[in-house]
Design a protein around this nucleic acid. Structure first.
Length: 422
RNA sequence: GGAGGGAUGGCAGAGCGGUAAUGCAACGGAUUGCUAAUCCGUCAACGUGUAACAGCGUUGCGGGGGUUCGAGUCCCCCUCCCUCCGCCA
């Protein structure tokens, strides 16, 4: 959500940012409507001022028992203009708000400009893809052969894009979640949080999922939205509030199921559990001082990388291009884990700095120690990590010639000492 | 599901037709061996204005509509929160 005054003062920069996002220039249209709204506001205020003054005189006259009819008549003449002025004010400001709430965040200056993932930049790479003396399988081949991953059963229950896990795989999913939560909460300072999975409209608006991306969400018959990520809840924890400057940063971690309609993804990644309507994710959220959000993003990305490193999953970090970033982000790093079965890197985490974009939508502020008033906080979110995809990466990277796979050392304590799944 | 109560500035909390008390917190200033205390002011948003302040003005009492010369106060609709009862993991 944008500050109109900022657009007024920086119309070129604003449109440049929109261009990077593949959005047509907006400033001229927005500013002309803004000007109209302000002109109307000014004349409206003059009329209101007049009405107030007359009403005061009427009150005074009546209390003295004098005749106020001519004053009342004069106010009566104002009435129609006053009402239409108020109506125009409402219409203009609402339509401006609607326009502004549908525009994506501005990319940071050094974010590569491009329409899609082709323009992303690899910023670093860690680990070496394992070499197999057999043709590496995809996770669903391994899982199904082991009898621990059942897409047919899931389809019977719920249709496509769901899975049923059994035995060691079900436990591995739980182990991964616990492992991640433990590290983030005990080593990295994220406060473990248990949150609602159903939210109201204003919550989804706050993070930028509404109004523009309603089709991506599941909605219940009584108006709740199922969260597509814990980002939505954790970020909104600070909505409508004013934090003390020394409370920042706030860091939250939560493990939740995530629900996505995948409306625009028909036909993509249909095999396996890479793209599901429901999956678990451990999500990090930081509420940061504006001066610190840049560093906080690096820190957060590092926390996600630490998980991949301890699990021994090779990965690369990508700085996303302006066209590939999410709606609310101004800078995003994707961590892509190596998937031997697909012979490529696939997204397994995404860490974004949203600046004050979401904070404005949520009215989340802090009070600076010096000076008066309040400022908007910065919000950041990152997967730490997507559990389902991490499960895939573990299975594929640790797969064995016999059709099973090994358990990474770091995970073994969480698996009751199990070292491999056969 | 039934019955009530409520939504006011960062927080607490009055006002029930005449144009937002008061307290706390915070900020600026004054005073003061230090701390504390005390006093004055500021303390929402927007418009206008300014180099930036100031100033001036309007709005603001959950949202929308109505009555009225005038609405936080009265009427209608909606949203959300809370309490009790019932049901239930």
């Amino acid at each position: 959500m944008y500050d109109l005054r900022w657009i007024r003062e920086n119309p070129e920069a604003f449109d440049a940012g929109m261009a990077a996002r593949g959005v047509a220039p907006q400033a001229a249209d927005i500013l002309s409507r803004d000007e109209k709204a302000r002109a109307n506001r000014t004349t409206l205020q003059e009329m209101q001022n007049r009405r107030n003054a007359l009403s005061k005189q009427i009150g005074a006259a009546k209390s003295k028992g004098e005749d106020a009819d001519h004053l009342i008549a004069e106010v009566g003449e104002l009435k129609g203009a006053l009402q239409s002025g108020e109506e125009i004010e409402r219409e203009l400001s609402q339509s401006l708000r609607e326009t502004l709430s549908g525009l994506p965040n501005q990319p940071e200056a050094d974010v590569p400009v491009g329409p899609d993932e082709e323009a992303n930049i690899e910023v670093r790479r860690h680990g070496t893809p394992p070499v197999f003396d057999f043709k590496p399988k995809e996770h669903f081949e391994i899982g199904e052969a082991l009898g621990l991953m059942d897409f047919e059963a899931a389809s019977k229950l719920s249709g496509s894009r769901f899975v049923v896990l059994h035995g060691a795989l079900a436990r591995l999913e739980r182990a991964l979640s616990t492992f991640m939560l433990d590290i983030h909460s005990t080593e990295f300072g994220y406060s473990e949080t248990s949150v609602p999975l159903l939210v109201r409209e204003h919550t989804a608006f706050g993070t930028g999922n509404l109004p523009k991306f309603e089709e991506d969400l599941f909605k219940t018959t009584d108006g709740f939205y199922l969260i597509p990520t814990a980002e939505m809840v954790l970020t909104n924890l600070v909505r409508d509030g004013v934090l003390g400057e020394d409370e920042l940063p706030l860091r939250f971690i939560a493990h939740t199921p995530c629900f996505r309609s995948e409306a625009g993804a028909a036909g993509r990644d249909t095999r396996g559990m890479l793209r599901q309507h429901q999956f678990y994710k451990v999500e990090m959220v930081s509420i940061s001082h504006p001066d610190d959000s840049k560093n906080e993003l690096d820190r957060m990305t590092g926390c996600a990388e630490a998980i991949l490193q301890r699990l021994g999953i090779p990965y690369r970090a990508m700085l996303l291009s302006s066209g590939d970033m999410g709606f609310s982000a101004k800078r995003t790093y994707d961590l892509e884990g190596w998937m031997p079965g697909q012979d490529c890197y696939r997204e397994i985490s995404s860490c974004s700095n949203c600046g004050d974009f979401q904070a404005r939508r949520m009215s989340a502020r802090y009070k600076p120690k010096q000076g008066k008033g309040t400022n908007f906080v910065h919000t950041l979110n990152g997967s730490g990590l997507a559990v389902g995809r991490t499960l895939i990466a573990v299975m594929e990277n640790y797969q064995l010639a016999d059709g099973g796979f090994a358990i990474p050392e770091a995970l073994q304590p969480y698996m009751g000492g199990m070292t491999r799944v056969v």
